[in-house]
Every structure is written in structure tokens, then in C-alpha cells.
């Protein structure tokens, strides 16, 4: 009974938040963000623990694996775009992964963070479902990673347009790739304003970044285990 109400409750709240987002389109109202906050408030006010919530919600969580596998489909259909720009996409995605990893490790060391926090931070530029799986595999806390990933996403979606202007990043390909590989889905959703090409480059580099990150993050993780 609890399980079913948690599943249905999560879905209803998510759908409502999606409608809210459609009405006032701003990155701050991303349905994941608003739904998460609302669910936490509800659980806290009825003193329901996270473990109790997960009795039901784990069934929604179980769909993450097949959803990640599904990303093979857009990657396959966009294989021609990838082939045409193979060198610049791959180089940029690797550069993005390395600059994200190195900069966050430097900050984490300055803040004197413990290793489990650092491990949770490493996959932050990768799309949430994959980032959480990487985090779990290397010994981080997947829920914390999900929050860092969302913050990285919001940063790109909110600040991206200013960064493009100030740093004169004007080509649609560069905009797409930098957004997709630094701010995953949130950043990519902002790319609709810059046209079809930026958008498809963004989603391609988001997926490639997830695959490349799955190989690189565990290597960096070796230093903190």
C-alpha cells in the first residue's frame, strides 16, 4: 500500500511540476528540482523516512538502467553528425571531462573535503542517471552526486548564455558541445534557442560525455580510494 502510494504520488507530483514548468519557462522550475523539493517537504511533514519512501520509489528508480541503455538510440540515429565532426567532438568532450575533473578536485582539496565527498563530486558534469551509477561504482554517494549534477546543469542553463557572450563563444557547434559536455540535459534544453545544429551537437556530446566519463572517472577515483 505504501509502495503504491509512493509510486503514484511521485508520478503525480512530477506531472504537475512539468505542467508548471510549461507555463513559466525558467530553468529554476525544472520539474526535477521542484518535484524533489515538494516531495522532501511532504515526506518531512508526515515524518516519512527516505527508506520508507524508497520501498515504492525504487520501482521508478529501476527504470534508470534501461533508460541509460535507450541513449544508444539517439546516438545511433545521429551517427552521421558524429562522423562528420568526430575529431572536434571527441577532443572537446575529453577536454571538458578533464577540465571539470581537475578543477573540482582542486576546489575539493582547497575545502579539505573527505574522499567520499570527492568521489561523489567527480561525475558531476555527466547526465544524472549515468553519473549516479558511476558514483555508486567508484564508492561515492549517488544521491549527493545527483544534487551536484543538477547544480552543474542549472549553472549551464542559467549562466551559459552570458558565458557565450562574454567569452565570444559564437559558433553553434562550440555552444552545443560545451553545454552538452559540461551541463548535460539541463544545458542542452537551453540550446533550443541557438538552433537545430547546436541542439543536436549538445545531445550527442552529452551522451558521448557519459560514455567517456564512465571510463575516465574511475581512473581519477583511484587517487581517492
Amino acid at each position: 500500500m505504501i509502495a503504491i502510494s509512493m509510486i503514484i504520488g511521485t508520478i503525480i507530483i512530477f506531472v504537475l511540476m512539468k505542467k508548471l514548468n510549461a507555463r513559466f519557462s525558467t530553468p529554476l522550475l525544472f520539474p526535477v528540482v521542484t518535484a524533489t523539493i515538494l516531495i522532501i517537504i511532504l515526506l518531512k511533514s508526515f515524518s516519512i523516512s527516505y527508506d520508507t519512501y524508497m520501498i515504492g520509489a525504487k520501482w521508478i528508480d529501476a527504470m534508470l538502467g534501461p533508460a541509460v541503455v535507450s541513449m544508444a538510440y539517439p546516438l545511433y540515429t545521429q551517427r552521421n553528425i558524429i562522423k562528420q565532426n568526430l575529431f572536434s567532438i571527441l577532443t572537446s568532450v575529453v577536454v571538458a571531462m578533464l577540465s571539470g575533473l581537475i578543477s573540482i578536485i582542486v576546489f575539493a582539496k582547497l575545502l579539505n573535503l573527505s574522499n567520499d565527498y570527492i568521489l561523489s563530486l567527480l561525475p558531476k558534469s555527466i547526465t544524472t542517471p549515468v553519473a549516479m551509477q558511476i558514483s555508486g561504482a567508484i564508492g561515492g554517494f549517488p544521491s549527493l552526486t545527483a544534487v551536484f549534477v543538477i547544480i552543474a546543469g542549472l549553472t549551464g542553463a542559467l549562466l551559459g548564455p552570458f558565458i557565450f557572450k562574454i567569452c565570444r563563444i559564437e559558433k553553434s557547434v562550440s555552444r552545443g558541445i560545451s553545454m552538452g559536455s559540461a551541463s548535460h540535459g539541463f544545458g542542452v534544453s537551453k540550446l533550443t534557442e541557438y538552433g537545430e545544429r547546436a541542439l543536436s551537437m549538445g545531445s550527442v556530446s552529452m551522451t558521448l560525455s557519459a560514455i567517456i566519463g564512465a571510463f575516465i572517472c574511475p581512473l581519477f577515483a583511484l587517487f581517492f580510494q
Binding site: T10, F14, A35, I40, S143, A146, G185
Partner: peptide, 21 residues
Amino acid sequence: AGFLLGLLALFFVPSTVGVMN
């Protein structure tokens, strides 16, 4: 695949709620 990817954001809500811990 299209169906799952369309609902991707819903699937990670349970994990993000975990931040309450």
C-alpha cells in the same frame, strides 16, 4: 527508447529526494 528517454527526468526523482539524508 523514445518513451523511456521522454520520462528520463522522472526516473531520477527518487534518487534526488535522497538528498534529504
